[in-house]
Design a protein around this nucleic acid. Structure first.
Lengths: 297, 297
DNA sequence: CATATTAATTCAAAAATTTTGAAGTAAATC
DNA sequence: GATTTACTTCAAAATTTTTGAATTAATATG
């Protein structure tokens, strides 16, 4: 009895706020929506909309359908793209999740080359941090991750290729008190300092921690840009990709700090679902894997 | 453009084999199905059915929709049950996956008590082995696992309660050559013997191995009943739940073998999805967790 | 406090979609 | 070569959905 139409209808009403606005936005009469909702209420035997003053409210059950239905709509979108890819050979759309740690310029350059070959493919790009990229892939919100952080989650129908390892440079504002020290910093120094950390965009992640210590004070940001800005302001210390750190060091906005124990490099991956079938994705994976996304200094 | 209706339609045609049989089974004219398929072919821009002799075949794209669509249909069923549970308080159906290792009698006894309280709830029971129970839960094919084997998969929106630990008894046919030895069996003896092993019903599992050694020869069976029969026949050796082994030992059909290193006990769990909301499931969990499913000898 | 306005519902008529069943075509079987 | 089976096409019939005017009720305005 629940259909994709019902999920879309309820989400649309929820987003619009009122029935009449939802009707106006979808170019229909308000009574058409009342009719549809009544039909589903009858067939399911539960109430979906309740009067609330002179407007309506979604019931708890309807809200649940909206929330859980989002995943279903994503899966259907994904299935449709796969079917089109099989039927026509080339998929109409590829969705990328790019880790914020990866240079956007390098990604854009690959995309530009790709679109020259496949102009009919629509590319959707979103940025995710850490575990969030894997989340987006396993829930089928995206088709390809650029810069996923190893290791890949177990047994999830995902294939990967290495993009290379990247060093992490501890860079801080020249005005920061730790920048004025002469000696190498110890773990105690790092633990006592305030860190600027990119927040994991995964909703429920088994807390992956890439820091050498567990700092007492952190500022969470949602992108590399925000992290850089925070560190330049001297709000805290943190690791940066070498190429980003270098250019800021040259401008005098940051200074690089040497540690007595060098943090391990991060291994970044290209990752996609084994059930992806389109020619375009195959070509895009090829292009990304031969591009130099993580320049070795 | 893909709808649940299309997924159901294609699966129905695939199962029926021919359009006319599909039409007859669904109580419609064959031309109605032609019309629907044409409509979807036009809107998607791909071919779904191809003539093959005087019948039709599903194209590769259509087969893909059938296969991947199965998960979507399960999710929608599940979502509907959840919505009904929220709307009415009691869900119309609860799907159980029972590990083959768990005593069916004990499960049935709990179910019987449950149905006395909630006669309107339809219970669906299936047996799964090992990782297969987790698969069934995470893909929303079932609502509750009885006898899942710890640990639960990471970060998957699943809640668990311990059912207890169960010992494993190495029991073999009295005619088996190892039964005639006097001494305790060593790892080498175990490795050289043929084992009867319950096949993991998970389609893609990160191969969980509960054996103390990697035997050279195994017979795979799909249930505890088949395993027991195979061991009684002397086809191989294997672990059994203590209560099962005991009763067969009393009948003289098996003998228990002591090992020099006792295998670790298996910890079994009750597991369900955090997003489950029905009163019935809550009561059923309560009943299972207080029942004595794994009798301590 | 009466009046205007906004939002949802009801209902009959109109529009759109889906189904039917008869006629036609092509492949397999007798 | 005739017959049967399976699908397609097409116009008519049935069903479903949408519309828009009338109605009810809650909030805002003068």
């Amino acid at each position: 009895m629940i259909s994709l139409e019902l999920i879309r209808l309820l989400r649309h009403i929820r987003n619009a706020g009122t029935l009449s606005q939802a009707a106006a936005q979808s170019g229909k009469a308000a009574s058409a929506l009342t009719y549809q909702v009544d039909k589903y209420e009858d067939s399911l035997g539960i109430t979906l909309l309740q009067p609330h003053g002179r407007t309506i409210r979604l019931t708890e059950a309807a809200m649940h359908i909206c929330e859980m239905g989002a995943d279903i709509l994503n899966s259907v979108d994904s299935l449709e793209a796969q079917a089109l890819a099989i039927g026509t050979g080339v998929e109409p759309r590829i969705r990328l999740a790019v880790d914020t740690w990866v240079s956007t310029d390098a990604v854009m350059s690959v995309i530009s080359d790709f679109l020259a070959e496949y102009p009919q493919v629509e590319l959707q790009i979103e940025h995710q941090a850490l575990q969030g990229t894997w989340d987006a892939l396993t829930t089928q919100r995206v088709d390809l991750i650029v810069g996923a952080i190893a290791p890949k989650p177990a047994g999830s129908g995902v294939q990967t290729l290495p993009l290379g390892k990247t060093e992490r440079v501890l860079a801080i504002s020249p005005d920061h008190y730790l920048a004025k020290r002469g000696a190498l910093l110890t773990d105690e120094d790092l633990e006592a300092a305030r860190w600027v950390v990119i927040k994991d965009s995964s909703s429920m992640s088994p807390k992956r921690d890439l820091l050498p210590t567990t700092p007492q004070s952190v500022i969470l940001v949602d992108s590399l840009e925000a992290k850089l800005a925070a560190q330049i302001q001297g709000l805290g210390i943190g690791f940066l990709p070498p190429q980003v750190a270098k250019s800021m060091v040259l401008k005098g906005q940051l200074v690089e700090i040497k540690l007595d124990s060098r943090p391990p490099d991060i291994e970044m991956l290209l990752a996609w679902r084994t059930d992806s079938r389109g020619q375009g994705l195959i070509r895009l994976i090829d292009m990304f894997s031969t591009a130099d996304l993580l320049p070795q200094h």
